[in-house]
Each structure stands twice: as structure tokens, then as C-alpha cells.
């Protein structure tokens, strides 16, 4: 049977503008979490839980890192919780990225803004499996950039900012032509970015991780859905996703 996980906050850092990195400790979650899954976190004083993707796992230390942007009152309240506090969490939820399937040798990770975090744990896991990783990470401005060094350690990393205040100027899709041969891509970020990425890389196999406002977070309420491309209806992002094959969903 599933249960509510009580996760203790070990560290809280502001790592970029409005962006919080939080390290949580929990043996079972650390042991079972796979890249692309999320935690559905209860925030004091708020009716709905907040889905936050898993950015990194240290299985030895039982540590799970999450990153989130302080956008509204819920994420601000979450960011203000002190070290030592206990979070009430459902998860790890969702399907995560498929690491079993063999997808060539070189994998491109394309992240935008707060869509970057899940790609880090994914990239680390892929490197362990022997894949070569290339990362393209887009941010609004220099102030929002995070994890550049961490990604650089697992492979070639290109940073892009909308205004050119850091790295290359433009959108993540502007630099895709510079990338050498890749076999497959994984992407997470805002919808317009995912659309542009999919159309640029339509000849490649790809996976998209989607975000949507969630209710229950377990598949019961049908709030976070995405239409499928075969017109069969909707898939549930929290339960069938958040990771989908690029051609599977209408975005």
C-alpha cells in the first residue's frame, strides 16, 4: 500500500533569482525514485498540493533534491520552511523517463527555466548507463541561470538566455543546429519551447515532460490532462506522464 511520506528538509538554498533548491531526506523515496518523477507536496495553509519534479537523488545519503521557482503564495510558503521541518509528500509519482529502452549513444537534453531540474537527475543516470550527454539549457536572464557547472560535469553544456545576458542569446532552438549528431532527445520546459523543440527535432526520437495545474496528483480527479495525438482522448499528466513520447501528445 502507498502512504504519505514524511520527508525532512536538510538544506534550503536560493540558487538563482526566485529559485529555491531544497534537499530532503527519505530512505524509501531515495531508493525508488526514477528520473522524471515528481513529489506532490503539501504546503501549510494551502488546499492543493504542489507537484515538484525530482532534480537529483543521492541513494547513499537518502537525499532527494528538488528545485522550484517561487511563483505564487504556495511556492513562497514552501521556500520559507526551515531546515529540520517535515514535509508531507505523496510520491514519487508519475512514470518518469524510460531508461530501459536503448536509444543510440548520444542523448540531447533540452531544458527551459524550471523545466531544467528533472533533466539533471536524468542526465546523471544516463551517463551511468554509458550514454554521451549534450545539454542545452535556456533561461530568461543571467539571474535565473542555475546548475551550469553540474551539467558541465556530465557533458557538453550550452546555456542560452532570452536577452543574451549570459551564454548565447536567443532560444534553445536557435542553437540546435550547432549540435553534433544525436540519437534521441529529452526535453522539459514551457509549452511553447516544447512545441518548438519537437518541430525542430521531428526526425528524432524524443520524450517530453509536461507540466499542468494538478489536483489530486494521483490520477483520480482528471484535472491535469493532455490530448493525445491519436484522438483517443486525454492522458493524465500525473499518472500516465509527466513524461510522454513526443509524438504521443498534442501540445
Amino acid at each position: 500500500m502507498k502512504t504519505i511520506q514524511k520527508m525532512i528538509i536538510k538544506k534550503v538554498n536560493t540558487i538563482a533569482l526566485d529559485t529555491t533548491e531544497m534537499v530532503l531526506v527519505h530512505e524509501e523515496v531515495a531508493r525508488t525514485a526514477i528520473p522524471g518523477q515528481f513529489l506532490h507536496i503539501s504546503v501549510p495553509g494551502h488546499t492543493l498540493r504542489r507537484p515538484v519534479s525530482i532534480a537529483d537523488v543521492d541513494k547513499k545519503e537518502h537525499a532527494i533534491t528538488i528545485l522550484f521557482k517561487q511563483i505564487g503564495s504556495g511556492t513562497k510558503a514552501l521556500a520559507s520552511l526551515p531546515v529540520g521541518a517535515t514535509l508531507d509528500v505523496l510520491g514519487p509519482n508519475g512514470n518518469g523517463f524510460n531508461l530501459q529502452e536503448k536509444n543510440g549513444d548520444t542523448i540531447l537534453l533540452i531544458g527551459g527555466g524550471i523545466g531544467v531540474p528533472p533533466l539533471y537527475y536524468l542526465g546523471k543516470s544516463l551517463v551511468e548507463k554509458g550514454y554521451k550527454i549534450i545539454s542545452v539549457l535556456g533561461f530568461q536572464t543571467k539571474d535565473y541561470v542555475f546548475y551550469e557547472q553540474k551539467f558541465s560535469k556530465i557533458g557538453k553544456t550550452i546555456i542560452v538566455t532570452d536577452d543574451g545576458s549570459y551564454g548565447e542569446k536567443g532560444l534553445v532552438t536557435d542553437v540546435l543546429n550547432e549540435i553534433e549528431q544525436i540519437d534521441c532527445y529529452y526535453s522539459c520546459g514551457p509549452l511553447p519551447m516544447l512545441k518548438a523543440v519537437r518541430s525542430h527535432l521531428s526526425h528524432k526520437k524524443g520524450y517530453l515532460s509536461l507540466e499542468e495545474r494538478m489536483g489530486c496528483g494521483v490520477g483520480a480527479c482528471f484535472a491535469c490532462v493532455v490530448p493525445t495525438n491519436d484522438d483517443s482522448g486525454y492522458k493524465k499528466i500525473c499518472q500516465d506522464g509527466p513524461v510522454f513520447q513526443a509524438e504521443e501528445v498534442q501540445i
Binding site: H46, L48, R213, G215, F222, A223, V226
Partner: peptide, 12 residues
């Protein structure tokens, strides 16, 4: 069968 509404479907 009904497909329901477009998203967002919930707000706190």
C-alpha cells in the same frame, strides 16, 4: 464518452 474541458481545469 466525454472528453471534458481544455486545461487549466483547476485553480486553488
Amino acid at each position: 464518452k466525454r472528453l471534458g474541458n481544455p486545461t487549466p481545469r483547476v485553480a486553488e
